[in-house]
Design a protein around this nucleic acid. Structure first.
Lengths: 347, 347
DNA sequence: CTGTTAGCGCATTCAA
DNA sequence: TTGAATGCGCTAACAG
């Protein structure tokens, strides 16, 4: 390790024969500094290779200029887009980012929250893990008045703004679409009902059935963790059913695709025997044959909105509280796998 | 924002009627502190809701206990695994992580490097962007003696350890496999030859041809950015070729899959007309029909090894320099799409 | 084993 | 418009 000593504002001050206080002010564009000295300071700083010491600054100012992000996983196109959206806004506002993933486990999420807390983030953006039941591990932030914003997988709390899409409506629409395509016996594969996204999609599914006069059957609602592995198991469960459904709406594309592939392996024709719909518009939805009908929503936008809301709070702009829940747009993406053969003939 | 004042080691010292220095030592498990006082200190700290101030500590110790990571993208199973592997090692060693993505652009990578530098990371783990030509933006780290380690997409520099798999060998093996399956006219779709991973896979491809007595044709080497979009364009390029290849080895699965799908859309039979192989063992390689032959390597392991190497350096353990390049294992995953019909008959 | 002392680099109050 | 002085909270000599 090496120890070329760092240039400090004192070094600049000495070179310029002015005080460190003036340098400090000049560097951060303080109004009460003459144009000229400001210019000299900035030039000298650059010439001398000065870089400000965040830690001294943070220590002094009692804030970190850092924003934390906790997400279930980073490895999806959606989350990647979310992070990219956040990063842009956050950097432009002069903040840094600490990113961590809970890997869908509360335990890890609790640890992550502690790390964020100890790192004294100025604000926190969170999408909850699969099995999180309460937000006690976030109460330390709320108590301290550190802005906490949930997005996508949210928790309702008066102190916390939430950014979501209308999962209920999307679930309703996609189920209605399957019905319009001729499905009369539709199964829904959902995730933990602790998570708003799955609960709401499920409600939308049920209401769509009801509104079209189709009775809801308990056997047609399956809850698993929406992973490829469990989706495959679910496929076998379906294969062994006496009355198989003629349509399946899965709460994410991973589940839809894996289930579909396994069923097809066992001779089920898609979409003629069973039509399929997923959620998220993952790239795989366009790779699987036939292509999957799904719901698209913009991660980038969600990230940007969440970040903007947070920064608004940090700047003491509480307009956002007027609309404590921000609901973004989504879009139904209709593809081949939900188009039953008969429907083609009718055209 | 709120300002309940934070508990400091002075508060603990006062309550316990000891000095702040002792508290500081007790908290960090200093050897020269009696079992008893240590216990009292830790209990008091917990009772009083103390949390250590990283910034004061960093300022004082002149190090940050933070490690930076710069990767092209976070949204792949591979990178996600890499990060997870790093996170575990790094946390266990008491370091924090700052993660950022270059989104495959040098410009962003340069900015990220600057941010990392200003945040005074103790060490840096990097996988290069698609079009990075030199590592001038990392020279500030090298000059300052801040350990810099490249993994996967690496740059050869005497000061920087690298963690890779044997891309040459993998390229050689997968090409040989296609040849053994009966392919006589094999195309290779590669990425930027600035990146070791693509350059080496390409070399492996060429040598495999040579060793099997197949002449290399310039028309059979296509360079694109390996995205789905460009893969589709490449497919059309192939369709318009007078003599189409009977096998294609693409340098990643995304490219292989998109190209394959587009070709099939236009009547090409896979693998009978053209056999396919990819690289990475992405989930999509198992979703596409027919499943893709590919090369698997463990992101988790690569991340862990890279992190361990870095921490070794930080602790002044330079054994690693003896093997400046660490080469991890890979594995050929043989699936249906490279198995020509004839081969089945022969069995 | 524990205490005293000093200073890391910066931002801010108060004075000028 | 600028400077002097102070302390944010912690750690590491050095001294006992």
């Amino acid at each position: 390790m090496n120890h070329h000593k760092e240039v400090t504002i004192y070094d600049i001050a000495k070179t310029l024969n002015i005080s460190a206080a003036t340098v400090s002010r000049g560097l951060k564009d303080h109004p009460a500094i003459s144009k000229n000295t400001k210019k000299r300071i900035i030039e000298a700083a650059k010439a001398m290779g000065y870089r400000s010491n965040t830690f001294a600054s943070n220590l002094r100012r009692q804030r970190t200029n850092t924003i934390g992000i906790i997400v279930p996983r980073l490895n999806s196109t959606f989350m990647s887009d979310v992070i990219a959206g956040m990063e842009k806004i956050v950097n432009d506002a002069g903040y840094n980012l600490i990113i961590s993933q809970s890997l869908e486990s509360v335990e890890k999420e609790i640890k992550n929250a502690a790390t964020m807390f100890n790192n004294r983030v100025d604000g926190l953006l969170v999408s909850l893990a699969y099995n999180t039941e309460n937000i006690n591990h976030f109460s330390q932030f709320i108590k301290k008045g550190i802005p906490l914003i949930f997005f996508d997988r949210v928790y309702e709390h008066p102190a916390c703004p939430t950014i979501v899409i209308n999962n209920y409506k999307a679930g309703y629409e996609i189920t209605s679409h399957l019905i319009e395509q001729g499905c009369k016996d539709i199964m829904h594969i959902s995730g933990s009902q602790l998570r708003n996204v799955y609960l709401q999609r499920c409600k939308g599914y049920k209401d769509a059935l009801a509104d079209h006069g189709i009775p809801f059957k308990n056997n047609n609602l399956i809850i698993n963790n929406l992973s490829a592995t469990e989706a495959t198991q679910t496929a076998h469960q379906i294969l062994s059913m006496p009355d198989r459904p003629d349509g399946i709406f899965a709460a994410n594309d991973t589940c839809a695709v894996s289930c579909m592939i396994e069923l097809r392996k066992h001779g089920v024709r898609i979409p003629d025997d069973i039509a399929f719909a997923g959620f998220n518009n993952d790239p795989i939805s366009q790779i699987v044959e036939p292509n999957l009908t799904t719901v698209d929503y913009k991660g980038n936008e969600m990230g940007a909105v969440a970040a903007r809301t947070l920064i608004g709070h940090l700047n003491g702009n509480f307009d956002f509280l007027l609309t404590n829940t921000l609901m973004l747009r989504h879009e139904l993406i209709i593809r081949e796998s939900s188009l039953k053969k008969e429907m083609f003939y009718e055209q």
